[in-house]
Structure formats: C-alpha cells, structure tokens
C-alpha cells in the first residue's frame, strides 16, 4: 500500500474536559473511499471535522501529506483548501444555484467559472436549475448542489458526512454514482460517514467501526462484512446493538 495521505496518532478531542474521540491510530490512503460506521454519537462527525481542520485535536498529531499538525499551529490555508466536506444538510447560501456552485472558486480568486459551473451542474443533473434560488430546491436537488459545490474544487480529499441521510432512493442512487465516478476518474480520496452499512458496502474500499470514540476495527470492505476480526464488528454487521 502507498504512503498514507492522513495518519492520526493518539488523537484525542475533548469538549469542556469530556473526551469524545480517542483515535490510537488511523490511516487514510490516497484514492481510497474509507467508510466510518457506528451508532450515533460515537465521534464520526467529530473525526471528519478534525480531518477537515475545522477544529484542532486536543491531543495527538494528524499527519497530512507528510506534514504533522498537532493543534498548536494554524493549518496553512493552502493545505486546508485541499479538503472539503459535504455535510448531512446541504447548507446552501441564499443565492442562485450557480452562485452556490461557484462559491468555493470565488474564494480562491477564480471569477471566470461559468464553464466549470455549467459542466459540474450537468454532471449532477441540475443544468436547468442554474438560475434558480438554491433554497427553493428539493432536498435531493439541494444535496446534489452541495456535492457539485465540492466537486468543482477538485479537492484532494472529499469528506462526506451522511450525505444521503433522509433522501429518496433516486437521489441516493444518483449521489452514490457521482461519488463513485469522482473516486474512479479523479482518484479523489474520500472519507464517508454513514449509518447505512449497505451504502458502506456499496461504496467503500475499507470500513472502520467507531464505538465510544474509538476505532474498533478497520478492514477492507469484504473482510469487514464477511470476516470481521472483532466480535463487536460482527455484532454491528449483524445489526445487533453494540453500545
């Protein structure tokens, strides 16, 4: 396997003195889709925020592209811009669809983005809604705009935090296909948080189970579902409660 893109060591995140995440060791490899699964409240979204450098770890180090960050120093903007997140809710700006999609490029000083926006909107099937106010879209359409807004940036890492929760099967299928294509054609590294273990099975190359803020097991998808190494993983895959 190639050198990891991310390497987390002894990473801890605490809020008001209460530890919510403790990762002894976790690596994310270039070009892979790593799914993080586990019950609600085990720290999956917190882990994504750390990977996106939205919050610093309380303890430990995050190595990203060979540079080590320990929460004491500011992560350079150029590094931060290599990673972006699509959240469970699309969080669109109160602007047109095309303005939302172009937003990240504008932040980077790219003002002439018309062709790129048109191309990306076509890829998510929203070329006819470019002029529409983003907040008038349906839930599925809004999430596809959120995905387009991330896609256009061509980040090294795309973090997906329950991107298809509460969506209808048509939009789930469409978003999964876009994710699969982005990963295959651009070798984009992705970390997917999902409650849907079938989605993890469909999309991920590797799966990690988090329980009580700790990684219980990380394994290739096939192994994770068919020959789990930890009894808690086996119980989770069977659908048993594993709190």
């Amino acid at each position: 396997m190639s050198e990891p893109l991310y390497e987390l060591r002894q990473v801890e995140k605490a809020y008001h003195g209460r530890s919510v995440l403790h990762i002894d060791e976790l690596a994310v490899y270039p070009g892979e889709i790593l799914a993080l699964v586990g019950p609600s409240g085990v720290g999956k979204s917190t882990l994504l925020r750390l990977l996106n450098f939205l919050e610093p770890p309380t303890k430990g180090t995050i190595m990203f592209r060979g540079q080590v960050f320990n929460g004491q120093q500011e992560v350079p903007l150029a590094e931060r811009r290599r990673v972006t997140t699509v959240f469970q809710r699309p969080f669109l700006l109160n602007r047109s669809v095309k303005a939302n999609v172009a937003y990240g490029l504008h932040l980077r000083g790219n003002r002439d983005s018309r062709e790129q926006v048109a191309d990306v909107l076509a890829r998510v099937g929203l070329q006819d809604q470019a002029q529409q106010r983003a907040r008038t879209l349906s839930g599925g359409e809004a999430q596809r705009v959120a995905l387009a807004r991330a896609m256009i940036l061509q980040p090294d890492v795309l973090l997906l935090d329950e991107p298809t929760a509460n969506l209808d099967p048509y939009n789930v299928g469409m978003i999964e296909e876009i994710v699969r294509q982005m990963n295959a054609t651009q070798a984009m590294t992705m970390v997917l948080v999902t409650h849907n273990i079938f989605q993890a099975k469909r999309l991920a190359h590797r799966v990690a189970l988090l329980l009580n803020g700790r990684v219980v097991e990380t394994a290739p998808t096939d192994t994770f579902f068919n020959q789990p190494g930890d009894p808690r993983t086996a119980a989770f895959v069977r659908g048993d409660m594993v709190y």
């Binding site: 925020r49 939205l54 997140t85 959240f87």
Partner: peptide
C-alpha cells in the same frame, strides 16, 4: 446565521475575512 453554515463556509476554504 446557522453556526453549521459557517462551518460549511470554512470547509469550502474561506479565510476568516471571507
């Protein structure tokens, strides 16, 4: 303004001024 929207803005690469 939803604090999570602010997190989304930051995630898309905004500087503190942006």
């Amino acid at each position: 303004v939803d604090p999570q929207l602010q997190q989304q803005i930051k995630s898309l690469g905004a500087t503190p001024w942006q």
